[in-house]
């Protein structure tokens, strides 16, 4: 009869064993590392606050992680660095304040770990989000028109982004990002892991 007790103990033991070994030990090991002090005395990384943090929620709820990663693999392993996705590999320290893990596992689209440094043009980001084919012909990223309002007034408001000529229609000559669109681009702009870290070789 004690077979069921034996299986019970064995089953619980194996799973607790692996949870400790794979998850809890790395967490405990990392707790001794902490932020990195750069040459000019600032600490890297910093937790996100304000608009970029709001943008992180937009990134999450639109499911960007299903096509984009935020991690750079080391030199000689894949071609992430040669493709210009980052200057160095990413390490644990880069993500120490992430409240949700967004490193991703799929590259239907390119990596975004350093998109803030790689593509700092907000205009590009807005046009690309409104309809990716404008800036990237052949792209299969879905358009996100719901992050924008469109307009065709002769005198566009200051935050309007003009559409290129062939994408204009009588009712849409420029686009205005709504708050979620702006937050999302704020978040993308904040993605910059170019600080050199000693462990990232």
């Amino acid at each position: 009869m004690n077979r069921s007790l034996f299986i019970f103990i064995g089953v619980i033991f194996t799973v607790v064993f692996s949870l400790s070994g794979l998850v809890l030990v790395p967490d405990w090991q990392f707790s001794e590392i902490g932020q990195f002090k750069t040459a000019d005395g600032t600490l890297y990384p910093q937790p996100l606050t304000g608009p970029p943090d709001a943008g992180r929620h937009v990134y999450m709820d639109l499911g960007c992680i299903y096509c984009h990663t935020q991690q750079v693999r080391p030199e000689g392993f894949g071609a992430d660095i040669e493709r210009g996705w980052g200057r160095r590999r990413t390490v644990m320290r880069d993500y120490m304040f992430d409240p949700i893990n967004l490193t991703g596992t799929m590259r239907t689209g390119p990596d975004l770990a350093n998109i803030g440094a790689r593509q700092p043009s907000r205009t590009w980001q807005y046009l690309h989000l409104y309809n990716p084919v404008i800036t990237s012909p052949g792209s299969i990223m879905p358009p996100h028109p719901f992050l924008f309002t469109v307009g065709a007034d002769a005198a566009p408001p200051p935050d309007a982004v003009a559409l290129p000529k062939e994408w204009q229609t009588p009712t849409a000559k420029y686009i205005i990002p709504n708050s979620r669109g702006r937050f999302l681009v704020d978040y993308l702009m904040s993605l910059d892991k170019s600080v050199d870290l000693p462990e990232a070789q």
Binding site: P26, D27, M92, N101, T103
Partner: peptide, 18 residues
Amino acid sequence: LTQAPHINGTVRAIANWW
């Protein structure tokens, strides 16, 4: 482990795939 505060973001990734 993936959503509670004060856990390293990468450890969340490990917990996620575990």
